[in-house]
Amino acid sequence: MSNDTRQFLHGVRAALPVIASITPFSLLFGALAAEQSLSLAEVVLMSVLLYAGASQMVGIELFGADIAPWIVVFSILAVNFRHVLYSAAMGKTIRHFALAPKALAFFVMTDPQFAVTEKHAEGGAPVTPAWYFGLGVPCYAMWIAGSVLGAVFGNLIGDPRATGVDFLLPLYFLGLVMGFRGRAMWLPVVGVSGAVSVGAHQIVGTPWHISVGALAGVIVAVALAGRHVGERPA
């Protein structure tokens, strides 16, 4: 087996828990989109081009309402705004990628793709394009396949709350949060980020609570790092 193949398969293995937690949402997205009378082609196009679950949900919710198109686009932008932070952080991890794979790598950079990649790099393992796309391609393919299945068999999918699948994604994200506990200032960052997000959820509402909470956590990290730098004897 070539090294690239081995790396790719390692990536695929890392994709399994991601697929387990995102597939219910792709089914749900497809089902809701079909309910909003989006055609199958539109459902597929959305999953292929956006590949961003939360913003796709928001998008189809607003398609149904009588809302100006630019507001829908702006809402999609708002939900996806957190990617700017990911992108800034991940650039360093994949800086050795050539231009085309790098451009593609950012295209498939979802929450789990980013978090699993950062975690992989943290362990000292090299993030090769083969590993990265071994993780990314199955997730992308499953996301599209799930949206199609959801759109076609939507009425067979029961209430996600009754089957408990609505809870898989937060569980998975929680596991990822805990996975980063070795990082500098993890506890203050997570504490402040979480608390501000909960408050912002009430005050400014979804989806802004995510960006607001995350920014608060990042500011705490910067403030504490500044204190550290200041403490260092010159």
Binding site: Y86, V190, V212
Partner: peptide
């Protein structure tokens, strides 16, 4: 701090 901050939020 980005991954933990965003995921916690």
């Amino acid at each position: 701090a980005v991954p933990a901050a965003v995921l916690a939020a």
